[in-house]
């Protein structure tokens, strides 16, 4: 049993939860994820570690289906039945030079520990985050603090500049900004567009994939994804991959595998998706 230390709404449909999970917390590094299960009837779901110290871990989640909705109902002092991890490879760090860190939607929270780790290992960090509107721009102050340059975009222009994160990246590249590495985490379509923007100039681009998982420990194969013409397993080979090699159309299609079932389960429970 894993004690919930806090569970607060930080934006429309976006929540932050802190959990006491010493074994995972001690080991987790930027870029890794964990699997959790709420109770006996629960589903195992993957969530990226958004922060940790020696005892506790932070996760940030968006309500999309039954499980994430049920998570919002959990109160401080209550327990999750299972938390296991850390899973997947940690982000490869080192002195790279200038790293452009890009996050979209709830992926912004997942970006934060990675951007911070790049900064802490001596790199120049340019951060670009994007969301639909200003209400959904999260982790703004935290990211600004650790970034050498910082940009915000919103679809409707209610915060930062109107448009997409890829527009800013494109502009930076065209203006001759030296970028040694691009790291992107967010919706499939965002990571796809970012990878297309960096392809002509051959800037190394790392993307963190959000696939469907069941066990998360290298057994079921539901997280498989074509990378460079080969099938890879996001749980053990990833979750980070070379964005220029990922088949994003397949990624997005596979994310819809259980959509119908999810919608049905939400409907009978009166959850608005």
């Amino acid at each position: 049993m894993f004690k919930i230390l806090s569970n607060e709404k930080i934006a429309p449909r976006i929540f932050r939860m802190e959990i006491e999970a010493g074994l995972v917390a001690k080991k987790a590094k930027a870029g890794q994820f964990l699997m959790l299960r709420i109770d006996e009837k629960g589903e195992r779901i993957p969530l990226t570690v958004a922060g940790n110290d020696d005892k506790n871990i932070t996760i940030v989640y968006q309500t999309v289906g039954v499980t994430t909705h049920r998570l919002t109902e959990k109160k401080q002092g209550e327990y999750l039945l299972d938390v296991v991890g850390p899973l997947g490879h940690a982000t490869e760090l080192g002195q790279i030079g200038t790293v452009c860190c890009i996050g979209g939607g709830v992926g912004i929270a997942e970006l934060y520990p990675v951007a911070k780790a790049y900064k802490d290992s001596g790199n120049k960090v340019i951060t670009i985050i994007g969301a639909r509107d200003k209400e959904l721009v999260i982790y703004k102050d935290e990211l600004k603090k650790i970034s050498d340059e910082f940009f915000v975009t919103t679809d409707d222009g209610s915060d930062g500049e109107k448009g997409f994160v890829s527009n800013v990246l494109k502009r930076l590249i065209e203006a001759g900004q030296k970028i040694d590495l691009v790291y992107a985490v967010g919706p499939g379509i965002m990571m796809k567009v970012i990878s297309e923007v960096t392809r002509p100039s051959k800037i190394k681009t790392i993307v963190s994939l959000n696939t469907v998982l069941v066990d998360g420990t290298g057994m079921c194969g539901s997280c498989r994804i074509e990378v460079g013409g080969e099938t890879k397993f996001a749980c053990v080979d990833g979750p980070e991959f070379d964005g220029h090699k990922v088949n994003f159309d397949e990624l997005m299609a596979r994310q819809g595998f259980f959509k119908e079932q999810e919608a049905h389960a939400c409907k009978i429970r009166g959850i608005s998706q």
Binding site: G42, E43, T67, V214, M219, Q261, A265
Partner: peptide, 19 residues
């Protein structure tokens, strides 16, 4: 795994779906 470990045959009473 979906059917046995996660009891997807009892979906939606259990949360794990199978298609």
């Amino acid at each position: 795994t979906r059917a046995n470990l996660m009891k997807a045959y009892l979906f939606p009473d259990f949360d794990t779906p199978v298609n």
